[in-house]
């Protein structure tokens, strides 16, 4: 088990490095370099900039070096000084721009994934046990709709319904008094009170697919021989379902937590923008439209890290659940 975890950990680190390379390439793809854009930016704000200054900045920032060196520089700055670069739009270091917002993103993702499992798994079990019942059909229809509705549409609908019928907007994450308050327990509670619309929007499609996976695997497992054996042994039906098929059906769910997280993270920038949540989503969109490359690159890096770490966690969880992996039987 420890060996397995170590191997997975190394894989994760390798993937993070590869990821940083990809992000670096994306940063480098647009025409022109950072110095040109920075100078252009300065000119626009009325400053006098000479050609020599461009060269100076370029040299200062090391942009005249070959790209492997630049990549190493960039990566080293991140690792050693936690320096992700400079945001042109905000005229601040990237870390300052992101600041607290990253915690909202993480909290939102974790709460969403937790809520979607808490709801979807029991419903999936119910759906499988009561196959072809009214409840099952209803859940199936809801599941399909949930998967077919893009997050932004759902967010818009929720906004529409809440403003039209309840007279309140569901946008934003805090009550006024906590808007700029420092972190505290009360602020956290307030956050939880406001977070649910975002959780619903972000979690529905994932919950829908979890429900369908759970139902399908339960139906599969329910008819396996070992379940019949347990029944023949005289194990009561309720206990039997919990101990055997549910246990087996949890595996594919757990092993895809990483991808589940990827789906949630994937939807979050747009949902956050539509619901105007103060997380990194809106600034990601802004940085993309403004070609604020260091900012957008960093956020892409953050999003990807979240899912890679998620995959690592789900691999470890799966290993803990599945004896065949736990005892090093199969890879």
């Amino acid at each position: 088990m420890a060996k397995y975890a170590l191997r997975r950990f190394i894989t994760m680190v390798v993937m993070l490095v590869a990821l940083s390379l990809i992000v670096f390439v994306i940063l480098e793809l647009p025409p022109g370099d950072f110095a040109e854009r920075y100078v252009h930016d300065l000119r626009q704000s009325g400053a006098q900039v000479t050609y020599g200054q461009v060269e100076y900045y370029r040299h200062m920032l090391g942009l005249d070096r070959p790209w492997p060196e630049r990549y190493l520089n960039w990566a080293t700055n991140i690792v050693t000084r936690f320096d992700f670069g400079w945001s042109l739009t905000y005229r601040l270091p990237v870390t300052k721009v992101i600041g607290d917002r990253i915690w909202f993103t993480i909290i939102l993702s974790v709460v969403t994934i937790g809520a979607s499992y808490l709801i979807a798994i029991p419903l999936g079990i119910y759906s499988a046990i009561k196959q072809y019942s009214t409840g099952d059909y209803l859940l199936t229809i809801l599941g399909y709709l949930g998967m077919a509705t893009p997050a932004f549409l759902f967010a818009l609908l929720l906004l529409y319904v809440s403003t039209m019928y309840f007279g309140t907007s569901v946008g934003g994450l805090y009550s006024l008094e906590f808007q700029n308050a420092p972190w505290s327990w009360n602020k956290f509670i307030d956050l939880m009170r406001h977070i649910w619309p975002a959780v619903i929007v972000l979690g529905t499609s994932g919950a829908a697919s979890t429900l369908r996976t759970m139902r399908a695997t339960m139906l599969d497992e329910k008819n396996q021989l070992y379940v019949t054996v347990a029944r023949a042994k005289g194990v009561p039906e309720n206990k039997l379902i919990q101990k055997y098929p549910v246990r087996a059906a949890l595996n594919p769910i757990v092993s895809t937590i990483g991808w589940e997280l990827a789906t949630i993270v994937s939807g979050s920038p747009i949902t956050a923008t539509v619901l105007s949540l103060p997380d990194i989503g809106p600034i990601f969109l802004k940085s993309l439209t403004n070609q604020d490359i260091y900012l957008s690159g960093t956020i892409l890096l953050i999003y990807s890290c979240l899912t890679i770490v998620g995959t690592f966690v789900s691999d470890i969880l799966l290993a803990m659940l599945d004896p065949r992996i736990r005892y090093g039987g199969i890879e």
Binding site: L225, Y226, V229, A230, Y244, R247, A248, L321, D322, P323
Partner: peptide, 10 residues
């Protein structure tokens, strides 16, 4: 089928 008569998780 002895291969599937037992649950793999117990």
């Amino acid at each position: 089928e002895p291969m599937t008569s037992f649950s793999a998780y117990h």
